[in-house]
Design a protein around this nucleic acid. Structure first.
Lengths: 134, 134
DNA sequence: ATACATGCAAAGAATTTGCAGCTTG
DNA sequence: CAAGCTGCAAATTCTTTGCATGTAT
């Protein structure tokens, strides 16, 4: 199975890099659709998954919401806003050696781990404050 | 809004405790449906979410798969099998003070975090080994 | 040429929701 | 009896997939 270079795939890759705020597949589609009305959502999904499989972008599987895609491939953590669902980068050193701290691995093959922070982003704090004032 | 005690809610709670392996909503429904054929899936979902909101059970939001529910409410981590999608408890001490390690909180209100390990469970290792032998 | 990719629309999986009728407090 | 809850089915949301056609190598 040989991967081909297509215009659509390059467009999807460029869009993820351009929309540096962890866009969803739909946000990528909307951006591309404005300049390339013929692109289909299926193609956007397929290329996002292919690019992630190739390691060119990173798929962030956000609980309770659509997947998001990240142009930065170095390991870093994310915080997920419980209100609006957006994902943001967390400025923190990588926590290493966590797998070694596991006591009983029960025959499991530990491959990786991810730390997902949850919180409320500044924008949603403002919205909440405004609503409380009423 | 006053919460009422209903037969269905108690059944859902009991089922999550009985199925101690982090069942999905569907697994809870299947168990209950066998003894209570009239219970509806909507009710199972509603009660799982209510119980989680009340802190009586815990909702595990598994990337790329249905949510799972945990009867244990003390903080502990999980490992998610990439092959079968099941979730298992990880025997590890709680990592404390992680939120304090974040350098620039950018006005974010950090509430919580979860560490999700990924790996392959013993069952799936066996299946894979058996398939390779062919 | 021939595999792989696309666009489209339909299917799929997981979850939520509208509503009439039933229950709990 | 009034606020909440249930069962049912339809709707929603996000994502994948089947297929005929198009395109890169």
């Amino acid at each position: 199975m040989i991967r081909r270079t297509t215009i659509q795939k390059e467009l999807v890759f460029d869009a993820v890099r351009q929309l540096h705020n962890h866009p969803t597949a739909d946000e990528v589609y909307e951006l591309l659709h404005s300049t390339h009305p013929n692109i289909s959502k299926g193609t956007v999904y397929r290329n996002l998954n292919r690019l992630a499989a190739e390691g060119k972008i990173r798929k962030l599987e956000i609980p309770d919401g659509p997947d998001r895609f990240d142009h930065i491939c170095t390991n870093h953590y994310h915080i997920h806003c419980c209100k609006c669902g957006r994902a943001f980068d967390v400025d923190m050193e990588e926590v290493s050696g966590l797998i070694d701290k596991v006591k009983d691995k029960q025959g499991f093959d530990f491959l990786d781990y991810d730390i997902i922070f949850k919180g409320i982003c500044p924008d949603c704090q403002k919205i909440h404050a405004a609503e409380s004032e009423q």
